[in-house]
Write a protein that binds this DNA or RNA. Sequence first.
DNA 1: ACCTGAACACCGTTCAAGT
DNA 2: ACCTGAACACCGTTCAAGT
Lengths: 203, 203
Amino acid sequence: MRESTGGTRERIKAVALELFTEQGYEKTSLREIAERLNVTKAALYYHFKSKDDIVASFVEDRLEQMDALTAWADSQPATLATRRALISRYADTMFGGDMPSVMRFFEQNQTVLKSLSSGQQMRGRMMRLASALCRGDDSPAAQLRATLSLFAVHTSWFAVRAPGISDGERRRLALEVADELLAAIGAEPDEDSASTSTAGARG
Amino acid sequence: MRESTGGTRERIKAVALELFTEQGYEKTSLREIAERLNVTKAALYYHFKSKDDIVASFVEDRLEQMDALTAWADSQPATLATRRALISRYADTMFGGDMPSVMRFFEQNQTVLKSLSSGQQMRGRMMRLASALCRGDDSPAAQLRATLSLFAVHTSWFAVRAPGISDGERRRLALEVADELLAAIGAEPDEDSASTSTAGARG
DNA sequence: ACCTGAACACCGTTCAAGT
DNA sequence: ACCTGAACACCGTTCAAGT
């Protein structure tokens, strides 16, 4: 095992991901990261171009994962079953053993990520995923439902307060609610919707 | 009209709210705010104890509004009608003419707000609102649905991309989807869950 | 190739001093 | 009461210099 060669770069990534997720990107200083690794601040700049670049480094893998997911969805028929399979796979990447922390980092740091290029890329992929989820129904309501079904997955691990709830149960819960939202996509337009009056322009 | 006396403090609040919402709290420097008002950075510290304190100043009104909302909900019967009325009133404070920007600021700055005391207060109120929304059904699924219905209101003004969609239409859209989520709260536990059709429990 | 030391401009904050 | 000027420690970033 060679841990002296390429080790430092990976150690920086690991420590940064941990601290960024715990305390937030802005609140975590490079000095803090450097101290944990017993190097100087300047040393970080040998391995990364900037603070943003550290984020970009552990974002790229995730982007490919998202792309694969969207590509798969586009190759499937635009049915409810596909939508459900898609959200289930998405939940896998969120709760799965691989890299749960990367996605949690995103949930935690949405704001800052808007100005970071890697963050914008990630946002773009989320939009595409949402689009894939409401393929065949481009109504505003469908967009909102699709987006919320993704949010259900994200939300389930912080909005649900229960004594000893497991990750598996959170996942199941998220999918239960997400499925309901997805089931309402592509259905025939509402005849007796909540408020008869405000018709709403079609097309 | 006296604009020389108490004017400065209000002007600081206004400019700060605008810049914080546009660019984010961390990315906006006090120098930037001061320059817009033709004063020095130090002048801001006469009116506010710290940068955080500026946020706290325009948060307090909102807290009272949230408290009033929760209190009203608690005084009503725990029915679907109450839940729908509550989310509708919440949407009013989000889309209403009063102070739409304060809530948008929150949506934009969630991350930073976690470490700010005023942000934690706000989070607390959101939790209480969610609890009020699922009163009578304390199951994890109900919590998730309640939280997502609030998110529907927040999400409707950035997740829905449509040519010339108005604020009113976004509001109506949000409530349409939120109502569906709320209708599933307090219903008898699922016997034949997710599958069948889009049936949906009628409260 | 890998890292240090010292400097840079900027940040939020403080405080004595001015009117 | 209201604001300035100058200083403080900290931040991200750069770069010549060391091995």
